[in-house]
Nucleic acid binder design. Structure first.
Lengths: 333, 333
DNA sequence: CTGAAAGCGCTAACAT
DNA sequence: ATGTTAGCGCTTTCAG
């Protein structure tokens, strides 16, 4: 015999009240006489009743779950953001449906539609760039969206970031002040606005202020992978660079190890500044100087912003820029 | 005016068929005449109809979502498992609700109940140990459960692991063969059966076979954190150990760096074998020799097993042990 | 403070 | 091959 699922109706019957009343006590509605509440609670406990969130979702049109689109959870940059997101979600009684997109444009759209079909109350999107098709989907639905660590030039949806332009300008300036005039800029795809626009222009600005001529040959574009960094070392040496600003920690560790494996001394002969201040910066030897991007906080703030949006509260500004700074460690002098 | 959500009923009306027929084409039921299917599909497209997964879930009692309980997504060990889980979930059209538990017993139970309330079709649990209360919850519900990288001495639910006993025995044996007789065993909480039972006994077995006397003083218990490893270095040196088998990569990097910061040469004066073969083993210098635990695959296989369980297929064996081996790198001679 | 009743949008027999 | 009709378990007016 199948174990009978017990419903709000069973509780109502056993407690000699209506379903409405049971619903009220389950939802903490104050309009219930304490005595009735007590009676209902007892029955709930006795019957071991568990509200069915799906039914509730259908009736109330709220699922208390939000969709999180992430390029890759196993990447520490994104998983740090995700952790901040989930902690705040939990705090506000939301669950998150996590979906990996591999940063693949088509997959992102599929995943988004899937999430929307599941009636999520909101979406947090992480990715390297916002394609036109995904932006179209965003505006097609009325579900609130927040970008975490991702730039939307159009500012149509909420977003939480640091000032990437300023941060990379500062990082580059540190290197320039240390006397370098051949500073490499090493990033992922330059078509991603965060790299090709915000960061690269920050880098150029710093060069200009230090009266250093920009050289195309010092700009490197590569996958965000440790191995890619190791391999890139040789080309960097050949470029004549004596310092580098790198946009990703895993990449930076790869480059530094690659450099050192080839006998280049860091920081004596080559200085490095990386961008994400993840735990990797502490694990490397020498430890990596880094821009500190408050990843966990960025995730947390994104989710907090989303709760406001879902609640239809007024938000003064839905493009949030968090503070950053530079943490000096052993990879710079 | 609110944007009216369009339902299966609207499609039925516009296509001059019944809801049932629309439902059939949406669900790929073959019992539909091609012509009707075409007509319905056109209307669906024209109206931009999106099936509501919540309603479907309520009616069909299947949500096509599984709950994933994870101690911490930002830990690379677990996020690697999670990635494998999600990839296979996607393959089988499931979504995952990800919930961080911090390895906290009480939170695990809360989170599990929350997931169950959301009517997930199955659960994947990751954690350092299975408490009695969580095991009680598992058996209370009829929702299938699979443990990923976690041991259940009772074997009541499915699980996917490697043979931790054999693996740590082999790792310890390598160290013994290299001439060490003071080999440290460094792990997280020994109350966790995976550490205190499987791994520790494997370690002892290897010592015994190498005719080395077991010494309590060479067993270290510490949090799974980089910093904890760095700090532990001094105590390890004082213990007289000249080699160590370590159960976690982040910890291992910390210990190795701590040792080297104090002038101990690895592997010349101290050899290390770690356990998870994550990307960290490649990032460290020297690179870390490691047991290779196929994390991504373990996640993937867990999810595959869960799909079978959810489908009520017969599974020959629900305790799956995946193969492991040892990858030699620079931290051993 | 409590109850009655109408859905929420879809699936799943059961008919035809 | 297609339609009819009950629900799925809960929330939410609307009455009283």
């Amino acid at each position: 015999m199948e174990k009978q699922t017990i419903t709000i109706y069973d509780v109502a019957r056993e407690a000699n009240v209506s379903m409405a009343t049971v619903s009220r006590v389950v939802n903490g509605n104050p309009n219930v006489k304490p005595a009735t509440r007590k009676k209902v609670l007892e029955v709930i406990d006795r019957l071991d009743y568990r509200p069915n969130a799906v039914a509730r979702g259908l009736a109330s049109k709220k699922t208390t779950t939000v969709g999180v689109i992430i390029p890759d959870v196993s990447n520490i940059y994104f998983s740090s953001l995700a952790r901040g997101i989930d902690d705040v979600a939990t705090m506000y009684k939301y669950n998150i449906i996590l979906a990996n997109s591999d940063g693949n444009d088509e997959k992102e759209v599929n995943v988004l539609n899937n999430l929307l079909a599941k009636q999520v109350d909101g979406i947090i999107f992480m990715g390297h760039h916002i394609t036109d098709s995904i932006r179209a989907e965003f505006s097609r639905s009325k579900t609130p969206v927040v970008l975490a660590g991702s730039i939307d030039p159009d500012k149509q949806v909420g977003s939480v970031n640091i000032d990437y332009h300023a941060a990379s300008k500062e990082a580059t300036a540190v290197l320039a002040e240390n006397g370098h005039d051949k500073i490499a800029f090493i990033s992922g795809a330059l078509v991603d606005p965060i790299n090709g626009q915000n960061r690269l222009t920050g880098y150029k600005k710093a060069l200009k202020e230090a009266k250093i001529t920009f050289t195309e040959g010092l700009v490197f574009e590569t996958p965000y992978e440790y191995k890619a960094g190791e391999k890139l070392a040789e080309r960097i040496i050949n470029s004549g660079a004596t310092a580098a600003y790198i946009v990703d920690d895993e990449l930076a560790v790869g480059i530094m190890n690659g450099l050192q494996d080839k006998g280049v001394k860091v920081p004596e002969e080559f200085e490095i500044i990386t961008s994400n201040n993840t735990v990797l910066t502490d694990m490397a030897r020498p430890r990596l100087t880094s821009i500190s991007q408050p990843l966990y906080d960025m995730g947390a703030v994104s989710m907090r912003l989303l709760t406001k949006l879902m609640n239809k509260e007024d938000v003064e500004e839905k493009t949030i820029v968090l503070p950053h700074n530079i943490v000096k460690r052993g990879s710079t002098k």
